[in-house]
Design a protein around this nucleic acid. Structure first.
Length: 541
RNA sequence: GCGGGUGUAGCUCAAUGGCAGAGCGCUAGCUUCCCAAGCUAGUUACGAGGGUUCGAUUCCCUUCACCCGCUCCA
């Protein structure tokens, strides 16, 4: 009976605002780019997602038995740490260096480049010395440089000997005078702007006096809080490896270009697990978490082809990682065939714990070694604390390896909204098909679980409906509505994604039964008033 | 940050250098025994700031936000 129409992002955004799922932050002042608020329905949706995650991953986990697919039984604990942490944490984690990119813009090509990505070479011809650049990598790099230099000097291939190369290929970062630089996509010299710093971490100051000594950062991820509390958790809980620490919370990244509704926000919420295991078992645990997390989204309704698991290619991986997979969703705002990341499941080896012990490791080294500064000293010192783990049973001491399933709560909420949005047709009171907008949320994430209506506002129906409402409301979010035609009330609940509606009618007063209406199938069946709660609890699981 | 587009009611859209309009929605009342468009009444807007002008929602400038492309995607 459904004729599903194509999902349209504009319509979803409009519905989100109209029905109170999402608002732009600071809207009455014109809005603030990259920041979004959750409205009355949205906050319930997001809370449900977070609670489902916490319950399924942490509080509901049974550590006594090995779940399907897991190498063994394991323990899970939670953590909630501060958003502002010791600044050294971000130096050892690598974020401090990584998140302070220098960018240059090209006035001619209107393109933007990472300063350290542009490479080039000094060349002289016809009495002019320039620095010609390219973004092309490896073997073709030299070829491309020659090609661009010839073109600039209006020379032919056979005149290549007129080019006088000076030195090898080097980064643009070593060039002072940008006026003699030929940009990677430019035809003239000096079109590149001075490099400008893009600090992707939000900076703040601890204490009333602002100065570089008191500089601190809002965390760009929750993960580091779990690494630096690794020893505390071990010492306070009697957990044994393998075990996981889970944390939900806000993170902040000063994105260059926030786009696509809430997909890339500057303030967002993460749901992360750091799972610590023996190095010899880390690959099996990686596979377990990758599949476990994929199934979690599927079980909550992202069951279609829009969800996929993408294993990173080996050349995308850091060498210390033996695997990373992204759980991705084909968001409607992306081009056909493109997917956006919901969650990354990464095998991180012992990089993080070792960096917080010894100092920041250089991810380009193999085996991992301390990153050194110009004086041969550690670039960023670690805590110096012993973060190794000793297995009481075997006596073995080792640094656990880590598997990190890192999910975005806001991205999950957005994916659930996109997946739920459906336009179909339902018959009106005359039997004519009318278009209907319905949010087909999985009952666990639906903001409102049930609505209760008196069919008409008389004959004692409101009183019965209000009693049912009061009883249900102590168990889950319920909505009461007695205004206007009942069909209109059903449609309003369809847009909010409420899975069930209970209607008190004339027959209720005779035999004490009510109708329960299913959002998706539009089917109705009768249930005794006293059976409403168990009926719904069963169906909402 | 660059280029292009957009900004009028809660939503979707009109019109206009001289009192800003519709549909839907929403609120109240009536009607109504199961899927929005029956009746009546009410409700609400020119993104912000500045300029030109007797007068600006309309023209100009600045700014903010959104969309598309570039860039970014840790």
């Amino acid at each position: 009976m459904y004729s599903t129409m194509t999902m349209n992002m504009d319509k979803l955004v409009s519905l989100c605002k109209r029905r109170g799922f999402m608002f732009q932050s600071s809207e009455i002042y014109g809005g603030l780019n990259g920041f979004w608020d959750y409205g009355p329905l949205g906050v319930e949706l997001k809370r449900n997602i977070k609670e489902a995650w916490w319950r399924d991953m942490v509080s509901g986990h049974n550590e006594l038995v090995a779940p399907p697919g897991a190498p063994s039984a394991y323990e899970m604990t939670g953590l909630d740490c501060t958003i502002i942490m010791h600044p050294q944490i971000w130096k050892c984690s690598g974020h401090f260096d990584l998140f302070c990119d220098f960018m240059v813009d090209c006035r001619e090509s209107k393109r933007r480049y990472r300063h350290d990505h542009i490479r080039g070479r000094w060349v002289e011809a016809k009495g002019q010395r320039i620095f010609v650049t390219t973004l092309v990598q490896a073997i073709e790099e030299e070829q491309d440089l020659q090609h661009r230099a010839l073109k600039f000097f209006h020379l032919r291939n056979k005149d290549a000997e007129q080019l006088h190369w000076d030195g090898g290929i080097q980064s643009l970062a070593g060039v002072r005078d940008l006026a003699v630089v030929l940009g990677p996509d430019a035809s003239q010299l000096g079109t590149l702007t001075d490099p400008r710093e893009f600090n992707l971490m939000f900076k703040t100051y601890v204490g009333a006096l602002a100065g570089e000594e008191s500089a601190a950062y809002l965390r760009p991820e929750t993960a580091q809080g779990m690494f630096v509390n690794f020893k505390n958790v071990l010492d306070s809980t009697r957990v044994r490896v393998p075990f996981g620490i889970a944390q939900m919370g806000k993170s902040f990244r000063n994105e260059i270009t926030p786009r696509n509704f809430t997909f890339r926000s500057r303030e967002f919420e993460q749901m992360e697990i750091e799972f610590f295991c023996h190095p010899s078992e880390s690959q099996a645990w990686y596979r377990y978490w990758r599949d476990r997390r994929m199934k979690w989204y599927q079980d909550l309704g992202l069951s279609g082809e829009r969800l996929r698991l993408r294993e990173h290619d080996p050349d995308e991986l850091s060498h210390y990682s033996t695997g990373t997979a992204d759980i991705e969703y084909a968001f409607p705002f992306l081009a056909d065939g493109e997917y956006g990341e919901l969650e990354g499941v990464a095998h991180r080896g012992d990089f993080d714990l070792r960096s917080h012990m010894e100092g920041k490791l250089d991810p380009k080294t193999c085996p991992l070694q301390l990153e050194l500064d110009a004086n041969g000293q550690p670039k960023y010192r670690g805590s110096g604390k012993d973060l190794t783990y000793r297995d009481d049973l075997t006596g073995e001491r080792f640094i656990p390896h880590v598997v990190e399933p890192a999910a975005g709560a806001d991205r999950a909420a957005l994916a659930f909204l996109c997946e739920a949005y459906t336009e179909d047709e339902a018959p009106d009171e005359h039997g004519n098909l009318q278009s209907r907008t319905v949010m087909r949320f999985h009952p666990r994430v639906a903001p409102i679980k049930c609505a209760v209506f008196p069919l008409v506002k008389k004959d004692g129906m409101p009183e019965v409906a209000q009693r049912i409402y009061a009883e249900l409301k102590t168990h889950f979010p319920v909505f009461y509505d007695e205004k206007g035609a009942v069909g209109r009330r059903y449609r309003r609940q369809d847009e909010a994604g409420t899975p069930y509606c209970i209607t008190v009618d004339g027959q209720t007063l005779v035999d004490n039964t009510v109708t329960v209406r299913d959002r998706d199938s539009l089917e109705q069946w009768r249930v005794k008033v006293d059976d409403c709660l168990p009926e719904l609890l069963q169906r909402l699981k």
